[in-house]
Amino acid sequence: MADKLRFELVSPERVLASDDCDMVVMPGEEGDLGILVEHSPLVALLRPGVVEIYQGDKIEKRLFVSGGFAEVNPKGCILLAEEGIPLDGFAKAEAERRLDMAKRDLADVTEEGPVKDRAEHAVKVAEALVAAFA
């Protein structure tokens, strides 16, 4: 029995994080999820938000995900994120700029439909990214 949780964050472009840790807290669609070692198998949707990786009692790493899927199985916890950004080394100003741009894009969309849905989603992601710094 392993006493550490195997955690992986994978984006379509590459593997972003691969650690052994004690606990992962991630933003589930229906509320935050804390995953410890030997969590029962789970497949969950993620909303845009921050994933926190704990070593012992301390947060060792914080990563922003723009939403995606999480799979927990006996082998570990795997996050499939569309986009993942390590929060250290990422400036708040950058996040705000992104929010501005997303809002402007949304304002440009006049008709209802999938295009607007996507623009709204982009704003939500950017808002969550800014909130991650609060």
Binding site: G28, E29, E30, L33, S40, P41, L42, V43, A44, L45, F69, N73, P74
Partner: peptide, 17 residues
Amino acid sequence: AKALYTFEPEEEVILQR
């Protein structure tokens, strides 16, 4: 092992995404 998986939210919603 899969039979034991919990889905949150339901399978259909996850599948949609």
